[in-house]
Nucleic acid binder design. Structure first.
Lengths: 160, 160
DNA sequence: GCAGTCAGTTGCTTGAAGCAACCTTATGTG
DNA sequence: CACATAAGGTTGCTTCAAGCAACTGACTGC
């Protein structure tokens, strides 16, 4: 992208996309949400160029979506965690996941399932537990490998 | 973006972003949802370069998100409409709108409100009517200018 | 002393996005 | 009739983001 902003737009969707609409940004957030916290983990999982990952992480930190915490000194090494603002992207990610599942399906079914931690019910694209009906947030849910991932693994090419 | 795909990713979020994650794509979908259907309307509303708009519209048509319908002949002129697949992006847009409203707020409040057509209740970021509790879809809701837009208009700069 | 790990940074190349100008078919105006 | 304006693009050029590989730096383990 030449620029990451959308001048002249007075709309919160445009505002949101100015922050997380750049290539890779949402996938980085997703990856951190799934538990990938370190630079090389993210780089390997995403297949993103290292300089681009570096720039994105910095931007996401500047925007208060990620937080950088040291986990060792000399050499200083950091892990990346989601802030509350970052965790609050969960409903958007779940909505996109649902749309992707419905309209660009994998042969063996969805490769990722979201389930309610408390009752184990599957979570709809609105972030609502289909078992107990509760409106969920990021911390209430967990991602599990779905049937589509097994199918891909059998086909011998899955890496993420 | 150098490329619009994310090779090696086995995740429906990545799949979704391959289709609508390019710069401008989601804003075009939003604009068409709001009733902008013609090339120059979209170009003016978004401030997008004409060649880029042309390319995006073609891509969205190829991906079966938009449909191109002639509204006059000689010269042939077209309007762009959302397909069911395109309309189904509504929950994702509403989720992003909600996130934007919460975390990058406009001084005067949200510039756009989503309301349930049937009962007039405001719609949450999960696409649920806060009045009647119904889980809504694109056709059940309408966008209205919000308080933040009035504030911007008073400040004298709003154009969209 | 040499290899390996982790987290980046630097330099180069490619190509997407921005911009302005142009084209085509048509309608309106004096 | 000449001229201007409109809609919906296309073409050509420029700029800057993204991809890629190589390098750095500070350490650990053998």
């Amino acid at each position: 992208m030449l620029r990451h902003d959308y001048p002249g737009q007075y709309c919160s969707i445009a505002k949101a996309l100015e922050v997380i609409g750049e290539r890779w940004s949402l996938l980085i957030v997703r990856d951190v949400m799934l538990g990938n916290r370190r630079f090389d983990e993210l780089q390997g999982s995403l297949g993103i160029a290292r300089n681009v990952l570096s720039a994105r992480l910095q931007r996401l930190i500047d925007e208060d979506i990620l937080e950088r915490r040291p986990y060792q000194t000399s050499p200083e090494r950091h892990e990346y965690f989601l802030t509350e603002k970052g965790l609050d992207l969960w409903p958007s990610l779940v909505a996109l996941l649902g749309w992707g599942d419905r309209h660009t399906p994998y042969p063996g079914g969805p490769p990722m399932l979201i389930v309610h931690k408390e009752c184990g019910g599957t979570v709809s694209d609105r972030g609502i537990c289909e078992e107990c009906g509760e409106v969920l947030h990021a911390r209430d849910a967990r991602a599990l490998p779905g049937p589509g991932l097994d199918a891909l693994a059998l086909a011998g090419t899955a890496n993420a």
